[in-house]
């Protein structure tokens, strides 16, 4: 049975120790070098600002979280379906993969204004941007993941007369889960950034809007507080995906992947 050994806790501890050391060094550097607040505030000042602005931050956190999550679901959902189509119908892959790469090469910052024109000022354009940013890594990973089934498993499913659907559900899908979660971990953080960038360009709410507003008002401490909350949101999304992976791919440790 897989019991989380001392290694897991050591890894967690190591992660926290690294972060803590970083913040302590930051705090010390700002104090010793007497860096002005508007250039770089110390972490303690940012934290105090987060507490002070908490109701405001929370109000703007909500739309960003909705957009990020919506984009996460949409982008990954489409990527998974498309990857499944690629594996079963190679001509579809040949036809659409270049298009997917093309989509990837479009600078998102440049098309955001267009999306605002097309889709309005509501959630829709932000969700689309967050989806676009999550889409490509998942498509690439899942195309590999669905093809990761070994030849012998395929032959086994054939000799027991499994249908294509049964083979997909019972073998391809579970076999692809480690690949899926690698991709979802990337998407979990990037979808938050996508949503923020989209708000930054055109919105009157959300953490991205708050970044712009704080910059205009020269409210440097609030700007940093917003950045901190955005990072925490992305970190939270990442941790949720990592926890889901532990739950849904318990054999991952067995296989030593």
């Amino acid at each position: 049975m897989s019991v989380p050994g001392a290694g897991v806790w050591l890894r967690w501890f190591g992660g926290f120790a690294g972060l803590a050391a970083f913040f302590v060094a930051w705090e010390a550097a700002v104090a010793i070098l007497q860096v002005p607040l508007y250039v770089l505030p110390p972490p303690s000042a940012i934290w105090r600002q987060v507490l002070r602005d908490w109701p405001l931050l929370l109000r703007h956190l909500q739309p960003t979280a909705i957009e990020a999550f919506g984009g996460f679901a949409l982008g990954n959902g489409v990527a998974i379906l498309l990857a499944a189509a690629f594996v079963h119908w190679p001509p579809v892959q040949r036809a659409l993969f270049p298009l997917a790469i093309g989509l990837r090469t479009i600078p998102l910052v440049a098309i955001t204004p267009l999306l605002l024109v097309w889709l309005g000022y509501g959630y829709a354009p932000k969700i689309v941007i967050a989806a676009l940013i999550s889409f490509f890594p998942t498509l690439v990973n899942m195309t590999r993941g669905f093809a990761a089934m070994d030849q012998q498993s395929l032959e086994l499913m054939h000799t027991i007369s499994a249908s294509t659907w049964q083979t997909f559900v019972k073998v391809r899908w579970p076999a692809s889960l480690p690949y899926l979660f690698s991709a979802l971990k990337i998407a979990a953080t990037s979808c938050v950034l996508g949503a923020v960038v989209a708000e930054w360009i055109g919105s009157d709410r959300g953490l991205g809007y708050l970044v712009v507003a704080a910059t205009f008002e020269f409210a440097i401490a609030r700007l940093w507080a917003t950045i901190a909350v955005t990072s925490l949101l992305a970190l939270l999304a990442f941790l949720v995906v990592a926890a889901a992976e532990r739950f849904f791919v318990p054999w991952r440790d067995d296989a030593g992947i």
Partner: peptide, 19 residues
């Protein structure tokens, strides 16, 4: 014969599903 499940195959690699 395969559809009638008249035979089974055992492979060199056990090909068990790890999950």
């Amino acid at each position: 014969a395969r559809r009638a499940r008249a035979f089974s195959m055992v492979f060199q690699d056990p090909a068990l599903l790890p999950w």
